[in-house]
């Protein structure tokens, strides 16, 4: 089964997301900040990355996504957004932000599983 990395600073979100993903048999690994997240992704090479848009700083999830792409990591990224229009940046899928899809919080288990399944299939 695919390994999915979840990078989010909210432990409750990691907990709930992990439980939903594991219920479908996915393996998960998590990190609560961009630095740890980057390390774990480089080390464990997950098949999918779930990334919160804002952790320690506004848009630092977005910067981590850029950093991953610069490091030739082409793994699909699913981005968690909280307020779709955050400070400074407006997002449209694919444009500007090197991620593959968005899920807006609060996360519905069905929406999350659908998007994860689609992204894994595409690959």
């Amino acid at each position: 089964m695919a390994l999915i990395a979840i990078i989010d600073d909210d432990p409750d979100i990691i907990e709930a997301s992990t439980l939903v993903l594991q219920s479908k048999g996915y393996d998960t690994v998590s990190a609560s900040n961009p630095t740890d997240g980057f390390k774990k992704i480089m080390e464990l090479q997950p098949q999918l990355i779930i990334l919160d848009v804002m952790m320690e700083e506004p848009d630092d999830g977005f910067f981590l996504a850029q950093k991953l792409r610069r490091n030739k990591i082409t793994t699909p990224i699913l981005m968690y957004t909280s307020v779709s229009k955050t400070i400074g940046f407006e997002y449209a899928a694919g444009e500007m932000v090197p991620v593959d899809d968005f899920v807006e919080k609060p996360i519905s288990p069905d929406e999350l599983l659908n998007k994860v399944e689609n992204l894994l299939k595409k690959k």
Binding site: D10, D12, I13, E15, A16, S17, L19, V20, S82, K105, P106, I107, S108, P109
Partner: peptide, 11 residues
């Protein structure tokens, strides 16, 4: 916090 609580409640 709303998102976190809703995440738990959904489960």
């Amino acid at each position: 916090p709303v998102a976190a609580v809703q995440g738990f409640l959904n489960i």
